[in-house]
Design a binder for these strands. Structure first.
Lengths: 183, 183
DNA sequence: ATTCCCATGTAAGCTGTTACATGATTCA
DNA sequence: TGAATCATGTAACAGCTTACATGGGAAT
């Protein structure tokens, strides 16, 4: 039920449409919790029929903005407090793959690890840039801003750790000069 | 298709039954790629009817051990090599939650972060202990062992990073003496 | 006019979880 | 003989992805 509560959490910041929420998932939350528009629109309908959100306004081309209700706020707060709702499931295909690296040819493995390192470093860089921007800004003292800062730090540290791991693994697997392939 | 290839990868090490594979997921892979027995038995049937694995032996109480076939080996190697199969999707509820920390009361948040730090530190400790054991052992030079060492390091670094993040966040959110709750 | 972006939705299929169901073997 | 563990499976449901489908509004 994470998507449900993710939507409630975003709507707790203020009214937004399915389209808005889709973009926020794409741009910010997507790196740690992806969600496409079909899932979002579907869940919004369910949230509305359960009375946790309601239509705030209707705009131009069929646009519908939703607003969180009192019971929606109660529900998101209950979810955040209830420790039995915390789910530590993680699915990192990159780590799963690493159990099977011994099946790869050294040159292919080296390529793969370089690509992985690049991908993770890029993700880390995006989060770290966000974090730096937040630190440079004044008036970072609303609870929202402080909490967002923590989230960003989490993303940065996660991807920094994975990037460092991929580089470490690439070093361990290093090939002798002539067999190393350029990217 | 990660589970499919996860099973192929494990079977590349040698024959195993659905029960064996379920336990390996539970004990080792489970922390980065969980899979329950209903999913595993179902996928094994499909792999067998696709000719990627075959029955190796039948044992006591209905036990069936599977063995990877030539085309199974080809398929797992293809999957490992093909960079378009790499999936960087990550779903970390802990990070998703952190975007909504501003909705929590400080005391509840502090409790939550302590629990998170404990959980991640425990997971990191298990992986780190494995890594140390591997480093102390002699004859760690088969490709399997080297590759397993990399996988373990990944798990350790991932959970160490998340533990450090949770502690950092708890420090930032720290309460003044009397409101801090003991665990 | 045409293209691009805004904006919403449905349908089919795949992946994953929970609950149910069964029976053999081992050990105390 | 009773409990624990081994061992396999099915059914129902929940969650998520991909492809399809539609149309309004803005800008060139």
């Amino acid at each position: 039920m994470s998507l449900r509560h993710g939507l409630l959490g975003l709507l707790a910041e203020g009214p937004a449409s399915g389209y808005d929420l889709t973009r926020r998932f794409e741009q910010v939350l997507g790196a740690v919790w992806p969600a496409g528009h079909p899932q979002i629109y579907g869940e919004l309908s369910r949230l509305a029929s359960d009375g946790l959100i309601e239509i705030d306004s209707e705009g131009p081309r069929g646009r519908k903005a939703y607003r969180i209700t009192e019971s929606g706020m109660t529900e998101i707060r209950r979810w955040l407090r209830d420790s039995s709702e915390v789910d530590h499931t993680t699915r990192l295909q990159s780590l799963l793959r690493s159990f099977f690296f011994w099946l790869m040819e050294p040159a292919d493995l080296n390529d793969h690890l370089m690509r992985e390192a690049d991908f993770f470093a890029a993700a880390a860089g995006r989060y770290r840039a966000y974090a730096d921007a937040a630190d440079r800004a004044e008036a970072t003292d609303t609870p929202q801003q402080r909490s967002q800062r923590i989230a960003i730090e989490g993303g940065a540290r996660l991807y920094e750790a994975l990037a460092a791991w991929a580089r470490w693994a690439a070093d361990r697997t290093e090939l002798t000069g002539d067999r190393r392939r350029p990217l």
